[in-house]
Amino acid sequence: MLKHQILCVLVGGDGDLMTLLSDTRHIFVRYLKKLIRNPILLTFSLIQPILFLVLFTQLFERFVSVPGFPAESYLLFAAPGILLQNAFGSALQSGNSIVADLDTGFLQKMLVTPVSRYAILLGRLLSDAFRVVVQSIIILVLAFVMGASPVTGIVGVLLMLFTIAFFGLAWSGISLAIGLKTKSSETVFAIGSFLTFPLIFMSTSLTPL
């Protein structure tokens, strides 16, 4: 009962949980359809991590010989970092979608219907999480083909994908907030790129400390 009340508060006013769920599902499906129908976008957002995976692992292969390197091969070391970087980069462009919906008036059109306001954001966030998980699976398969097998086994992989989903969710939320606040896709893009690169090179995703 209490749980239901809390959810009702979350849903806002008289909206009920079923409405939230079904609205979220419809908006989630809408974004998935949009994504699938724009294969160029999907391809190009995958090219960068794949380049990183193929090129960097060849380039920095010799890192392994540095005393104290924490993995057996550079590929093993870098693959998880590249996965997160992919999630990060893809999710940070999410704000563009809301800017596009604002510009075309689609957002206003949703807002004049009784659609759950939370579903509008939640549907988008979930579609982003889904997208980064699918992209991650592709990268993982590629890494596997290149000779990296996860030390932690299938459970480790699932946990990894689970973490990545939430990572994507969080950053796509930040990007949506930027999009809603600035209402400019150029700004979303600029802030997205500005955040991506320094954070990658400041982190230990590609080089050990």
């Binding site: 409405t19 079904s22 609205d23 419809h26 809408r30 359809k33 949009k34 129908r37 724009n38 075309t104 008036g105 689609f106 206003q108 059109k109 949703m110 004049v112 219907t113 009784p114 659609v115």
Partner: peptide, 27 residues
């Protein structure tokens, strides 16, 4: 029912999908 200033339909979806989606929004 509101027809907004902009012709607010989703270009990536078909006509039917657009109408169905608005219908779903109206429960």
């Amino acid at each position: 029912g509101v027809q907004t200033q902009e012709t607010a339909i989703d270009g990536d979806l078909t006509g039917r999908e657009n109408l169905m989606l608005q219908g779903h929004f109206q429960q």
